[in-house]
Amino acid sequence: MKRYAVYAVPGINKEEVAEAIRLRTAVDDWYGRQEFHDLTQDARRYGFHATLKAPIHLAAGRTEAQLCAAADAFAAGRGPVVISALRPAAIGGFRALVPGRDPEDLDVLAADALWTFEDFRAPLTQGDIRRRRPENLEQRERELFERWGYPYVLDKYLFHFTLTDHVPLERTAEIDVAIKDHFDGVSGVDVPLTAVVISVEPAPGAAFEVLSVHPFAEQAALETPDAPRPS
């Protein structure tokens, strides 16, 4: 049974600005490094992206075409946003790239996507619930999981591009040095996000594939922050 997700994927189109293309190329090259393939299996399966709406099964009566039409409308109603000053970071046991300055616009984008596409989400199955192990979640995360089918949304949301799966303690120094060196050319760079993407998992355990790209309104101005803002 297919699953669908709404993702942020800078550099998805060849005509995008150099910073976005360079970021996507760097992450794709990272996934291709054979010496770390044992630490990037899940990251590679989901592909280069930041999650806006986590993978879902379509609700009864909803179709793939309707989902894509909703993504068209969602994207047409907003302008590009900036992913500012990207930097490597540890999130729990895995590694990712995160914005280095206030991600408020990205948080708003993700919250809007969460609401907009909720009607497309089928209820969680018992298997879905068991796989997430809600007994291991914090209370707030469990509340969000029960309401939205995913625990890391709204006040628990963190915009990020996943680089690794869980990293064993004995390999953290090795992986951190490798990531710092590999992403030196994109660290600290502001990257515009100009579209949302619908990705699909064709079958359980298969790699996610880009189904459709939905550009933001072209006429909207792209504002790049000049300095960190108070949080």
Rank of each mutant, 00 (worst) to 15 (best):
Gln219Arg: 15
Leu193Gly: 04
Val189Tyr: 06
Val196Ile: 14
Thr162Arg: 09
Asp165Leu: 03
Ile179Arg: 09
Asp181Ala: 14
Pro225Ile: 06
Trp148Phe: 14
Lys180Cys: 11
Leu193Thr: 09
Leu211Thr: 05
Ile175Ser: 02
Ala221Arg: 14
Asp176Ser: 14
Gly185Asn: 12
Asp165Thr: 09
Phe161Tyr: 12
Phe161Asp: 02
Leu211Cys: 01
His182Met: 00
Phe159Pro: 03
Trp148Arg: 04
His214Thr: 01
Pro168Gly: 02
Gly188Gln: 08
Thr164Gln: 07
Leu222Pro: 02
Pro168Thr: 00
Ile198Tyr: 06
Glu201Thr: 01
Phe183Lys: 08
Leu154Asn: 03
Ala221Ile: 11
Glu170Asp: 15
Val191Ser: 04
Ala173Asp: 14
Val189Ser: 03
Ser212His: 08
Leu169Asp: 14
His166Ile: 13
Lys180Trp: 12
Glu223Ser: 13
Ala173Lys: 12
Pro168Tyr: 07
Pro215His: 05
Gly185Asp: 13
Leu158Gly: 05
Glu170Ser: 13
Ser199Trp: 09
Val213Lys: 10
Val191Met: 03
Asp181Tyr: 02
Arg171Ser: 01
Arg171Phe: 00
Val167Glu: 08
Val177Gly: 11
Ile179Ala: 01
Tyr150Ile: 08
Val213Gly: 07
Gly205Arg: 08
Phe208Pro: 04
Asp165Pro: 07
Ser187Asn: 06
Leu158Asn: 11
Pro225Leu: 03
Arg147Cys: 09
Leu193Met: 10
Ala206Asp: 14
Pro204Ser: 12
Val189Ile: 13
Glu174Gln: 13
Ala220Met: 13
Glu174Phe: 00
Tyr152Asp: 09
Ser199His: 10
Pro168Glu: 06
Lys180Gln: 15
Ser212Gly: 05
Pro215Cys: 02
Gly149Asn: 00
Pro204Glu: 14
Asp176Thr: 12
Val189Cys: 11
Gly188Trp: 08
Leu193Ser: 01
Ala221Asn: 09
Tyr150Ala: 07
Pro204Cys: 03
Ile179Glu: 01
Glu218Ile: 09
His160Ser: 02
Ala178Thr: 04
Val177Phe: 10
Phe161Pro: 07
Phe159Ala: 12
His182Phe: 08
Glu209Leu: 09
Pro168Lys: 07
Val197Cys: 05
Asp190Val: 03
Leu154Asp: 04
Gln219Phe: 15
